[in-house]
Structure formats: C-alpha cells, structure tokens
C-alpha cells in the first residue's frame, strides 16, 4: 500500500468527520459560546466541498484544483486565527480584570510572531511555497498564542472546561502537524507530495477526533463568577507584594552573610 492509496480513505474519513463535528457543534449550540469557532467549522465544510467539486470536474492534478486549493488556504488560516481568539475569549473572558491584561499579552505575542513571520516570508517565491511558508509561520503564531493562554490559565488557576480543553488540544495538534510537515517540505528534504498530503490529512483526522470527543457531551451551563471589588484587590495585592519584597530582602541577606 502506497501513501497515495492511503490518502483517499483518510480524506473520506476527514470529510465525514468535518460534517459530523460541524453538525455536533450546531446540535450542541456551540455558536452561543464560540461563534467564530463554529463559523470556522462551517467554513471548513464549505471550502472542502468546493475543493471536492473542483477536483471531481477537473481532476486533482489540474491547475484549477491547485489554484482553488492555494487560494482558499489563506482563508482557512485566517479563520483559524479567529477561532483561536474565540477560544481565548471564552477561556478567560469571564474574569474581566485578568482578561483585560491577558488580551493585550495574547494579541501582542501574536502580533510579534506575525511580524517575524512577515520578515521571514518576504523572500520566498511561488504561490505554493509562499503559502506553505506563511502557513507554517502562522501556525507557529497559533501554537505560541495558545501556549501563552494555557500558561495564563494555569497561573490564575482557571480550568479550561469541556469543550474548550479538547478544542484547544485539537488546534495545537494540527498546528504542530502543519509546522513539522511544512518545515520538511520547505527544507532540503525532498518529501513526496503523497507523503506530505497523507500526514496532513491524518493529522486533520486526529484533530477532528479531538473536537468530536470534546463535543460529545452537552455543553455545561456557563457560570459567571461573582467578582470582588477593585479596592479589595488593590489593598490585598499591595499587602502581598510588600511582604514578598520584604521576604526576598531577608532571603537575600541570608545568602550574603
């Protein structure tokens, strides 16, 4: 069995998975909590249906299919960015104080990586290689932003409950697959297209599996936390940081004796 043989059943599995996850998201009412993520799932279905239609009429090796594929890919990447922003907002948005701080951090990190990506990709030639290059850099931005979100969630002990955890895991997994396969394709290794394609499709199938698993149960009712007051926060944190400073000064004195 060759990789070309493998990619077809994997593609069918992926197509069925996309429809299944999208329907499950609609049944669970995911759009109420994650509108952009739901829109992304719908867009994936629309884009893949149009790609299949072009492939059916023109063939997978045709310029029409290639053009459709590479022109719709940036659209999906942008939609993934919006889906990630949705996950971030849903994870921390209820905690208004922390969210105000986190969104600047997350947006700043994403912007910095995108700026680096723009510098990296400026010299590449050809639509396909350019899109792969940009795609890889953008997936780096997705993965690092997601990682920062998870670090912030851990730091403030805000758990990513279902379905957020599974959705984030799926996003992270697919991003890493794109980074690894994209890097191999761009690098000096000559990776056969069939291998590249099969690995990506298999990665996408696993991602859909993660999302399907995350959406298996009805979404729990959203609990809005009862926030305290700004005065209480300011007073208490002042006490904590003052004591911590004092403690560190003592510890430092101990190490110098």
């Amino acid at each position: 069995m060759t990789f070309s043989d493998l990619s077809q059943p994997l593609s069918f599995l992926g197509a069925a998975g996309e429809i299944g996850v999208c329907l499950l998201a609609l049944v669970r009412g995911l759009w109420r909590r994650l509108p952009w993520f739901t829109a992304y799932l719908l867009l994936v279905n629309v884009v893949d249906t149009s790609r299949w239609a072009v492939m059916y009429y023109h063939g997978s090796g045709s310029p029409a299919y290639s053009w459709t594929y590479w022109m719709t890919q940036p659209l999906l990447i942008l939609a993934r960015g919006a889906a990630l922003a949705d996950v971030c907002r849903e994870a921390l948005g209820r905690y208004t104080g922390v969210w105000q701080l986190a969104r600047y951090l997350l947006a700043g990190t994403a912007a910095a990586i995108l700026l680096l990506a723009a510098v990296h990709t400026s010299g590449s030639r050809g639509v396909a290689s350019y899109v792969i290059f940009v795609e890889r850099e953008l997936e780096f931005a997705v993965l690092i932003t997601l990682l920062l979100l998870l670090v912030l969630s851990r730091y403030y002990e805000v758990a990513l409950d279902a379905p957020l955890g599974g959705l984030a895991l799926g996003l992270a997994f697919y991003s890493s697959i794109v980074i690894v396969t994209g890097s191999i394709l761009i690098g000096r290794f000559t990776l056969p297209w069939a291998v590249f394609s099969s690995v990506r499709i298999a990665g996408w199938d696993v991602t859909l599996g993660c999302w399907f698993y995350a959406l298996r149960a009805p979404l729990a009712a959203l609990v809005r936390p009862q926030l305290s007051t700004v005065e209480s926060y300011e007073e208490n944190t002042r006490v904590v940081s003052g004591r911590m400073r004092e403690l560190n000064a003592r510890l430092l004195a101990l190490t110098r004796r």
């Binding site: 104080g97 600047y104 403030y156 002990e157 305290s228 007051t229 300011e234």
Partner: peptide, 15 residues
C-alpha cells in the same frame, strides 16, 4: 494573591 486578581474586575499589569 492570584485568586484575588482573578476575582477582581480590574487588575494592574504592573502589580
């Protein structure tokens, strides 16, 4: 201290 920050409607980045 982190819990107090999470439950505050406003936090200071510097703090």
């Amino acid at each position: 201290a982190r819990l107090l920050a999470v439950l505050s409607p406003k936090v200071r980045a510097r703090q």
